[in-house]
Computed example of a mutant assay.
Amino acid sequence: MDKSLSLADRLRESIEEDIATGELPPGAPLDEAELTQRFGVSRTPVREALMQLASAGMVDIRHRRGAAVAQLGPQRLIEMFEVMAELEAMCGRHAARRMPAEALAALEAAHLACEAARNAGDADAYYHLNETFHHQIYAGSHSGFLCEQATTLHRRLRPYRRLQLRVKGRLQASYSEHQAVVDAIQAGDGERAAQALRRHVMVQGERFADLMAALAQLQTTTAEA
């Protein structure tokens, strides 16, 4: 955490990271007393942090029932993935034209790291390496504003993107889709890179049904804990 931030801001960052990584899954309760004990602080900065997260749409504050990690409805989730797909397509289109040789080498290295995690069947390791892969493309767009927007929405969708990787066969499919992206960017083909990333990010049909099933299973496990 950045020590230059206020205590409430630092708490917000810690809780946000737990939400983004799935440590606090959608629907998980956020008990003020437990948070004050965990962080060794008073309730005031905890409440401020929760209010900040509620403003960002990551936490729901329910009257008389306390706070909980926000759960996105199916339609909202589809809409967010649709926008994410277009942002990534734009990043890929620009990256294919603008990535210098050293950035291409870093993208290829990230892709090879994903391959090792795929071969090991390690979904959690792949998830973290997958983030590096995508962020290489965002940076490779050489558009600061586009990179910021893609990064922000990517972070908001992190719990759901992580869940997808636990669906049977998704690691192999994701890696194959990455290969198509890398090939297009290496070839300098912006349109092909855009199409490959759009297909990679979009969740439709069976992929969306699988995501909803994984989310329902996770929420059931959380409720039973």
Rank of each mutant, 00 (worst) to 15 (best):
K3R: 13
K3F: 09
K3D: 11
A8G: 05
A8C: 05
L11N: 05
E13G: 05
E16L: 10
P25Y: 09
G27L: 08
G27E: 09
A28R: 09
D31P: 00
E32L: 13
A33C: 02
L35H: 11
Q37R: 15
Q37M: 09
V41Y: 02
S42M: 05
S42F: 04
R43H: 15
E48M: 06
A49L: 07
M51G: 09
L53S: 06
A54M: 04
V59P: 07
D60Q: 13
G66S: 05
V69E: 13
A70L: 08
Q71V: 15
R76N: 09
M84P: 01
A85P: 10
A89C: 04
G92F: 02
R93G: 01
H94K: 10
E102Y: 08
E108Q: 14
E108H: 11
A117V: 06
N119L: 14
A120L: 10
G121A: 10
D122G: 07
Y127E: 09
L129E: 12
H135K: 10
Y138H: 13
Y138T: 01
G140Q: 05
S141M: 01
H142R: 11
G144Y: 01
F145M: 12
L153G: 08
H154N: 14
R155V: 01
L157A: 03
Q164C: 11
R166C: 00
E177T: 03
E177L: 06
E177N: 06
H178V: 06
V181K: 00
D183T: 12
A184H: 03
I185E: 02
I185F: 04
D189F: 03
D189V: 02
G190R: 00
G190P: 00
E191H: 03
V203K: 15
D210M: 01
A216H: 12
T220C: 04
T221K: 06
